[in-house]
């Protein structure tokens, strides 16, 4: 196992769907990680500050409202600018296949849709800690599924 990670789960933008984010937060807790959930309607700047102050090694973004294309890359860029390029970013929610390539290019290492199992998310975390997978690392590595 990856050992205990500090993981921030964030809801950027105006999206009010929080069930998935909470389910994931609890699942990660039950797997032995320390999880900080940001609550709804956070700006990219607020999310960066939370990840920084809480010394998160992982940042999980959740969006079901369709704003991921704009918000997620902005968060990735801000992380790099703030010297937090080693933080590993992953995402979930309603994210159409056609939008995913751009998000991987921005440095996001995994995208999980509805119905994702906890087991898969945990396997991703185990693998990501062993790969060069920080948001600003140009390794090209991304999660390929179980």
């Amino acid at each position: 196992m990856a050992g205990r990670q500090r993981i921030v789960i964030a809801k950027p933008g105006l999206d009010g769907h929080d069930r998935g984010a909470k389910v994931v937060a609890r699942a990660l807790r039950d797997a032995g990680h320390e999880v900080i959930y940001t609550g709804l309607r956070r700006t990219p700047e607020q999310i960066i500050m939370t990840a920084m102050d809480e010394d998160a090694s992982f940042l999980g973004l959740s969006s079901l409202s369709g704003a991921h294309g704009h918000l997620f890359p902005k968060i990735c860029k801000l992380l790099t600018e703030q010297g937090m390029g080693d933080v590993i970013v992953f995402a979930g929610g309603i994210i159409p296949e056609s939008d995913r390539e751009a998000l991987y290019d921005a440095g996001i290492r995994a995208i999980f849709g509805p119905g994702t199992s906890t087991e898969e998310i945990l396997s991703f975390i185990d693998e990501a800690v062993q790969k060069p997978s920080g948001v600003s690392v140009e390794s090209g590595w991304k999660w390929q599924g179980l």
Partner: peptide, 28 residues
């Protein structure tokens, strides 16, 4: 499990204040 959900930060509206927020460090 050894894990924890750290939920107090959600209540901290002062961290969102552009100026005051910078004066405060919050850690779970």
């Amino acid at each position: 499990s050894g894990g924890a959900l750290l939920g107090d930060r959600i209540r901290m509206t002062v961290l969102d204040e552009p100026e005051l927020g910078k004066q405060v460090y919050f850690r779970s």
